[in-house]
Design a protein around this nucleic acid. Sequence first.
DNA 1: CGCGCTTTGTGAACGTGTGCACGAATGCAT
DNA 2: ATGCATTCGTGCACACGTTCACAAAGCGCG
Lengths: 217, 217
Amino acid sequence: MARLPVYLRILIEQANENVECISSEGLAELGGVNAAKVRKDLSYLGSYGTRGVGYEVAFLVYQIRRELGLTHDWPVVIVGAGNLGQALAGYGGFGERGFPVAGVVDIEPTKVGSLIGGVRVRHIDDLAQIVQSRRVSIGVVATPPEAAQDAADRLVRAGATSILNFAPVVLVVPRGINVRKVDLAVELQILSYYEQRRVGVGLHAIAANDAGRGASA
Amino acid sequence: MARLPVYLRILIEQANENVECISSEGLAELGGVNAAKVRKDLSYLGSYGTRGVGYEVAFLVYQIRRELGLTHDWPVVIVGAGNLGQALAGYGGFGERGFPVAGVVDIEPTKVGSLIGGVRVRHIDDLAQIVQSRRVSIGVVATPPEAAQDAADRLVRAGATSILNFAPVVLVVPRGINVRKVDLAVELQILSYYEQRRVGVGLHAIAANDAGRGASA
DNA sequence: CGCGCTTTGTGAACGTGTGCACGAATGCAT
DNA sequence: ATGCATTCGTGCACACGTTCACAAAGCGCG
């Protein structure tokens, strides 16, 4: 069900272009996936399509939002005001998509107080207070690797129940805490893997586009 | 085989701590995966373990590096000197892990010339020259969504064969070009999906924080 | 030298996700 | 009203990845 967010973004784009109705095939092409897969995914939310016509864009947007829990905002707190933390806080895309930055914290006193993307950096000791007062359940770990586990522990203690981890370490968290990891170096290494094979295999590295990712046309 | 980079990082850490030998079970625990999975993954590179003992860390590092094509550096070029592009260029982790930033380009003349992470921003028209002179095969798209497709097209024309895309759009590229996508908002939406279900399902409150948080309709 | 302990490597069962193909339902033209 | 074209919903077969379980293989010790 990791494809629902992709459908949602495409549907919102379509709605902005005043498209009222879309077929599974159209949505599949825009999303770079199989049409049958689209139908299966959407049928999982219930049968909201009209046979012979397609899906009503606005209604589908509403249903996916509901399924993803995007009917209200989810404030996030960013731990680590380094390069990445600053970029994430300054990147407006989060707030627009329903994830306003409720706070940025850092352990380094010299970083506390500066203003990033309209949010003032506070000390990590204030984490619990921020999480509780702003009803934050999602924490973003954007610290150096050696500080990541401590950041995660603090987030969990403060009451966060989901963590998005950018540090290249495997976080250990209690059961029930949800962790997703984004490791930029890993992504590059996977690309380099295919690049390396490309040379040996020759130019027919079609299989290089692994099944779910990327679109080629 | 997207787990090889994870193993590699752990093995390098172990090597730095002078661990010479590691069992599949030990590696599995550090990597947060199943031991049998580790053995299957490693057996894919060949039978490099010693039964009754484990795997020699240094040798395994070498083999994985070889498999991933990390025996030499892969210079990358970053398209887009906005928030994210600056963070990526300034983030030292890339160079350390074998992906030095060969250049940063932007289409905005006002951004050209500034220094980011020791690299001077150049105009996007210089992209082809950078790619060819520095033998770049991996491009990073860190532009706003509406500029991402153009950035990808330019990268492909310049000769890049792999693209790491941070923009929330589905890139259309010729066959044989490898694309990986990292969509930060999607990651958050997936977390929010589980958060939303958490409330409904009434997960036995292991986290033991206030259970009724975030309930809304 | 042989025995037993440990750990790898892998065959087989299992579950999950994918894609095809087709029935069912809807709208439209005649 | 009837037939036709279109598109959804879904059963089914298939392929892939995961996990278990066990035989083969190495090491150390008596």
